[in-house]
């Protein structure tokens, strides 16, 4: 089971992307638990997650989140795949991040 946390500003714009990533994961037979959190409330969810992704609009928080995540893989989603809600591409990024850690 891969637990993914997606952080954006209010959790609204990222919800659709979550669904797309879940679809991409399921089609590859991955067991995935993914949800979006608002940046103001993300602190509590960090401990639960295996991989943490930031929406590009809050990527300036990358270093802060990295500090809080205690060595877990943290990255920002690139603007293009975020804008086109490309679940496949982001899922590939997740798999790559897990491979590196």
């Amino acid at each position: 089971m891969i637990k993914v946390l997606l952080i954006c500003s209010q959790g609204a714009s990222t919800a659709v992307l979550c669904d797309k990533i879940r679809e991409a994961a399921v089609s590859r037979n991955y067991d995935i638990d993914i949800h979006a959190a608002a940046i103001a409330r993300a602190d509590e969810d960090l401990a639960e997650a295996d991989v943490i992704l930031l929406g590009p609009q809050v990527r300036y928080m990358l270093n802060k989140v990295k500090g809080q995540a205690g060595g877990k893989p943290v990255a920002a989603i690139d603007m293009q795949s975020y804008g086109t809600i490309d679940g496949e591409k982001v899922f590939a990024q997740i798999v790559e991040m897990l491979g590196e850690s």
Binding site: A12, S13, Q57, M79, Q80, Y82, G83, T84
Partner: peptide
Amino acid sequence: VGKLSIIPGVFNVNEPVIFGLP
């Protein structure tokens, strides 16, 4: 990108067009 962005836009969310067009 335009088609993807219309529905979120109706509800005042526009990250798709901001990052997608970009």
